[in-house]
């Protein structure tokens, strides 16, 4: 950890527009600072600014940026009306970490790419222009969708995959005022600027996440990983499907750990909506999702894994209950 100065903000206004780096739960930032992957010289502690409540927001919900992952997953409204979100959060990290991890911090967590974490390796995300050690190296965790020749890292989180499927929006405020960013557009693909993970601008702070009205239907979050708990996803699938008269009426589908952002499958959703579920249809929808998918050796398996998991999740979500 490089030396830094520490201040504690009492209100969001003290953090907004400041050149200091926001620290919330600290569970990602301090991890990276210890490795000197992150080297902020000023920290602003936002744990005492409020923004720690889950509130009704019309038919929807407004989740403060400082709401802890545990509280959000256990929130009564979330459990009953947005179970996909509870499920995704509960699939992540550990009880201890979820008790500290915040809504804002979770969205902002950085990739787990091994080389990003190693300051002795070239990495365009960490040090633009230095190269990408993952290409030609070990890639078990890496992207199969939306990568570039500059960076093939994934966004590793779970919660944001659900938020993306649920059409949440992220409310942020900076020196130039407030704005809302769709969760689906919050994270960026690497392109030629892999150092920018998200659309958040310097000086902006996440204030809250807003959920639109409940979707209903079957909601499933399936996380596939190397051990049963306390491990990041290799592939995760978030699905919410509402059935009517044997056909899929609403379909939401998003994938985690396959790209630099939660991968919302709008095209596949459109293809499925209004149709009767069938294995063949699911397969064709998977073709659409995977068009352009590319593996980098170690992670080639993610392509069939995504397809199979997606099919199984859709089958489960569309199964008529007896």
């Amino acid at each position: 950890m490089r030396p830094f100065t520490y201040t504690r903000a009492a209100t969001p206004a003290e953090a907004i527009g400041s050149a200091a780096r926001i620290i919330a739960g600290g569970t990602n930032l301090l991890d990276l600072m210890k490795h000197q992957v992150e080297t902020p010289d000023r920290l602003c502690d936002v744990n005492h600014v409020g923004l720690d409540r889950v509130e009704r927001d019309g038919d929807g919900l407004r989740i403060g940026a400082l709401v802890r992952n545990s509280d959000l997953a256990a929130d009564d409204a979330v459990r009953t009306d947005w179970p996909l979100l509870s499920r995704a959060i509960l699939a992540g990290a550990s009880g201890q970490i979820r008790n500290r991890a915040t809504t804002g911090g979770n969205l902002m967590q950085r990739t787990r790419c091994y080389y990003f974490y190693d300051i002795d390796a070239p990495c365009n995300k960490r040090e633009p222009g230095s190269g990408c050690a993952a290409i030609g190296g070990r890639t078990r965790l890496h992207a199969i969708l939306g990568a570039s020749d500059q960076c093939i890292a994934t966004y590793p989180g779970d919660m944001a995959v659900a938020l993306s499927a649920l059409d949440a929006t992220v409310e942020v405020e900076g020196p130039e005022g407030r704005r809302e960013i769709a969760a689906t557009a919050f994270h960026r693909l690497p392109g030629t600027t892999p150092e920018r993970d998200t659309e958040l601008r310097p000086g902006e702070m996440i204030l809250s996440v807003r959920l639109p009205a409940p979707l209903g239907g079957r909601q499933i979050y399936r996380k596939v990983r190397d051990r049963r708990s306390y491990a990041f996803a290799l592939v995760s699938v978030a699905a919410a499907v509402g059935m009517k008269d044997g056909r899929m009426e609403t379909v939401r589908l998003a994938f985690g750990s396959v790209a630099a952002k939660p991968w919302r499958a709008i095209e596949a959703e459109a293809m499925l909506a209004g149709q009767a579920p069938s294995a063949d249809l699911f397969d064709r929808a998977a073709d659409v999702v995977l068009a352009g998918a590319q593996g980098y050796g170690d992670n080639d398996f993610k392509i069939p894994l995504l397809r199979r998991t997606m099919r199984a999740v859709l089958a489960e979500a569309t199964q008529e209950t007896m």
Binding site: I23, T27, L30, D45, Q96
Partner: peptide
């Protein structure tokens, strides 16, 4: 693992000043 106000957390990923 320690408890902060009865809730468990990892003490290694938090600053004392916080």
């Amino acid at each position: 693992t320690v408890m902060l106000d009865g809730r468990r957390m990892n003490a290694c990923l938090s600053l004392a000043v916080m």
